[in-house]
Design a protein around this nucleic acid. Structure first.
Length: 775
DNA sequence: GAACCCATCATTTTT
DNA sequence: TGATGGGTTC
């Protein structure tokens, strides 16, 4: 085989039976996987149809697909290259009816989940304060990852009151998902296992199909993914998993490192191939990484080596504060650029997203273009979610969550009170909310809103017809939605930058739709929504040809490589994170160390590390010690570079000393010293560091430009209800129920009314808005 | 209905 | 520090 080393070749040609490939960072893992597929097809005459390759991210799947297509001549399109989730969707779309569901189910993302959890808590009368939505989502997700359904979870809860309450939420949550004909991400995998369990014939079908299975990033699999793979591979046992236990950094989201550590126990006849030659980094960088990771216990025994030249040492600089640090990074970038490096070759890696702000400010000031990876997801922008809400309603009329999102967006006079009545009606009659909208003339108390509801219903019905009409493209449907709902008009009427950027985003979404229509085999609205749900990274490839520095978290950097890497914020309690240090789980810090290992091994040519002596973290000034990970790098591989040139304490010792070593900061002479030395920077520049100019940010790259503007106010002036009550009367309120009027104060042309409600307690409100009724 | 004020609370992220 | 959510005020 061309261009492969012995180990790589061994991994490619061992095709029958279980195989574990321990692939160190930069050891040519993807290369091996693609060559292995080619080997199966060309040398072993395996039908491409019988091959399944599973990855974690769409990006990885896409990359693998491209590389496989390039290397496999015929039939490569028949190979399943897929993420766990999209594989399961594909299976469920086909067989969900066997489970009593339908194939047009909706996939709920985290925001949808939040809405369902909120409803469930409300329904159960539970307080969000004691049971935070986020915690509920994560607990339920963990349960599903362990393949526990609500009943099993409840059983495990035992006598813990809290767990029993959570079990109730889990029950309610699932009930609502079912009613909405929706599944969350975990359900996709969970339900596929369930399908396979209850319908062995279906499992058999896929076992026969996937005679050769490969799983990438196996160290990131959770328990259900493990089960799924095990089931699929049970018949032919041609299972090849690839991973690196040292790069397991996703425990917090359920990854179970045991899956890879105990693969040999699970498959005693497994062959193990270790890829230990690194082709990516200089020897110094690689050995620095080895030095750090050696401090972890319970690893698979392996040692990465390289034939590459030693290269420069790792540079470490300790700056006075985060602004100095950012300045130092940009200065270094400019200097590297003058030496011929391109900005595309550089990446700044940090532990937390919050760290990007200072860096961005400094890059803007230095006029260095950058791309920010991560941050706000394209599909979580309000305008996109709104339109996607329409699309979801059109495909799946059972999706109450989406319907409620858009029923009054843009405002069309269908208020919360009306929706509440519809909801009650729907619940009483066991129908979907959407059906209740269609029946609105039958719903008690709706009154004037009926015509608005009918209009809305007719509009959605028209959209449905369009969606089913093969003559109407998805793009046409999209345009119609933007126009007929009035959504676009409302945005156009608003001249703010915010509105303009929203329109841009909607245009961006349009091009996603046309891309999808052009690229998909059988484009459909359901398929589009699937892409939206599962292909979260709306990666704008278009700017790949611009020369830009990359900014991202260490997590996002996994799988990537850059000639020049900057690891910033190498400080105790930032990296490793304070949370991991405080955790009772000893593996938490080890996971941070693995993250550091991942970071270091991203660098090909030169690695810069830095820390700040003083940093504002969560609004508090900290004086962090240098990260233990820096100290774990063998001394001969790291080079300390002094602070700013005017700092006379440029000793190695100073770079590592901790302010916290003294009982009081002020007793540490270096503390005062650093401030006098600091002033010598020259007032002008320095003050601009201290109070960075507010940076207007593009909504597309993340944060807000200005306060959102008010949309038209004229619609639906509040109908004034005559005030027919006075102090001492009993009144009812739409939300708070019955209460007694305690006080009425005239304010302007309105009354401020204080009411003591039976359930809700005392409230102050304005008579014109509260619409209190005397009883 | 929406601006405004205050309290609270802070990893990592893909699907 | 800053984003976010809930409650108050107009």
């Amino acid at each position: 085989m061309s261009g492969l080393n012995n180990k790589q070749e061994e991994a490619c040609s061992y095709t029958e039976g279980p195989l574990l490939i321990l692939a160190g960072a930069g050891s040519g893992k993807t290369r091996v996987l693609t060559h292995r597929i080619a080997y199966l097809i060309e040398k072993k005459s395996v039908d491409p149809y019988n091959i399944l390759a599973i990855t974690f991210t769409n990006k990885a799947a896409k990359e693998m697909r491209e590389r496989v297509d390039k290397i496999v001549k015929e039939g490569s399109e028949n190979i399943w290259v897929s993420t766990f989730h999209s594989m399961c969707v594909r299976i469920l779309r086909r067989f969900n009816e066997k489970m009593g569901g339908t194939n047009n189910f909706t996939i709920y993302d985290t925001d949808d989940q939040k809405a369902v959890i909120k409803e469930s808590l409300k329904y159960l009368g539970m307080d969000e304060k004691n049971y935070p939505v986020r915690a509920m989502i994560s607990t339920i997700s963990k349960a599903k990852e362990e393949f526990l359904d609500p009943t099993q979870f409840e059983r495990n809860a035992g006598s813990s009151y809290r767990d029993m309450q959570v079990a109730n939420v889990y029950h309610e949550y699932q009930k609502r998902l079912r009613q909405n004909n929706a599944m969350d991400f975990d359900d996709l995998i969970f339900n596929t296992i369930q399908l396979f369990t209850l319908h062995p014939d279906v499992l058999k079908l896929y076992q026969e199909r996937f005679k050769y299975i490969m799983v990438d990033e196996y160290q990131d699999t959770n328990h259900t993914q493990f089960l799924l793979v095990e089931m699929l591979a049970a018949k032919y046992r041609n299972l090849c998993v690839v991973g690196d236990d040292d790069q397991s950094i996703y425990k917090f989201r359920g990854a179970n490192i045991e899956n890879i550590l105990s693969f040999e126990k699970q498959y005693p006849d497994a062959k193990v191939v270790k890829l230990e030659q690194n082709y990516r980094s200089t020897a110094n960088i690689l050995n620095a990484a080895n030095g750090v990771i050696a401090n972890n216990e319970g690893r698979k025994d392996k040692s990465l080596w390289t034939d590459n030249p030693d290269g420069e040492r790792v540079f470490f600089t300790r700056y006075q504060n985060e602004y100095e640090e950012a300045k130092g990074v940009t200065d270094q970038m400019i200097s590297d650029q003058m030496d011929g490096a391109s900005l595309n070759d550089m990446a700044v890696l940090y532990r937390t997203n919050a760290q990007s702000r200072v860096l961005e400010e400094m890059l803007i000031r230095a006029n260095i273009p950058y791309r920010l990876v991560g941050g706000t997801n394209f599909y979580s922008r309000k305008e996109i979610r709104d339109i996607v809400g329409y699309l979801k309603c059109i495909v799946n009329p059972g999706d109450d969550i989406s319907l409620e999102r858009i029923i009054n967006v843009p405002r069309r006079g269908i208020g919360a009170a009306t929706v509440e009545k519809l909801r009650i009606y729907a619940e009483d009659n066991g129908i979907d909310l959407y059906d209740a909208v269609g029946d609105s003339d039958m719903v008690p108390g709706v009154g004037r809103a009926v015509s608005k509801l009918t209009d809305f219903f007719d509009m959605i019905e028209d959209f449905k017809k369009e969606a089913e009409d093969p003559g109407v493209s998805l793009e046409n449907l999209y345009s119609d939605i933007l126009e007929k709902t009035g959504y676009l008009d409302e945005l156009k009427a608003d001249t703010s930058l915010e509105a303009r950027s929203r329109i841009e985003n909607l245009e961006e979404f349009r091009s996603k739709i046309t891309d999808y229509e052009a690229g998909a085999e059988e484009p459909s609205l359901a398929g589009l929504l699937e892409d939206v749900a599962l292909v979260a990274d709306a990666d704008s490839e278009d700017d790949e040809d611009c020369d830009k520095v990359t900014l991202m978290t260490l997590h996002s950097a996994k799988g990537l490589e850059f000639p020049y890497v900057y690891m910033v914020g190498m400080e105790e309690r930032l990296f490793p994170s304070g949370m991991s240090l405080d955790s009772e789980d000893p593996d938490a810090t080890e996971e941070e160390r693995r993250l550091c290992y991942v970071g270091i091994t991203r660098a090909m040519k030169q690695l810069y590390m830095s820390a700040a002596k003083q940093r504002t973290l969560n609004g508090q000034t900290q004086y962090p010690a240098v990260s233990r990970f820096v100290k774990e790098i063998p001394k001969n591989l790291i080079r300390y570079r002094g602070l700013s040139m005017d700092d006379r304490q440029g000793a190695y010792d100073d770079a590592f000393s901790d302010y916290s070593s003294g009982s009081s900061f002020s007793r540490d002479s270096r503390y005062d010293f650093s401030y006098t030395g600091y002033d010598s920077y020259g007032g002008d520049r320095y003050s601009s560091y201290k109070t960075p100019k507010p940076v207007k940010r593009n909504v597309y790259t993340g944060k807000k430009l200005e306060k959102p503007k008010i949309y038209g106010l004229s619609k639906g002036m509040p109908e004034t209800t005559a005030i027919n009550y006075t102090v001492g009367d009993t009144v009812t309120h739409i939300k708070f129920g019955k209460g007694k009027v305690l006080e009425m104060i005239k304010g302007g042309n309105d009354y401020e009314v204080t009411v003591d409600f039976e359930k809700a307690g005392q409230k102050k409100m304005f008579a014109s808005l509260a619409k209190l009724r005397k009883i």
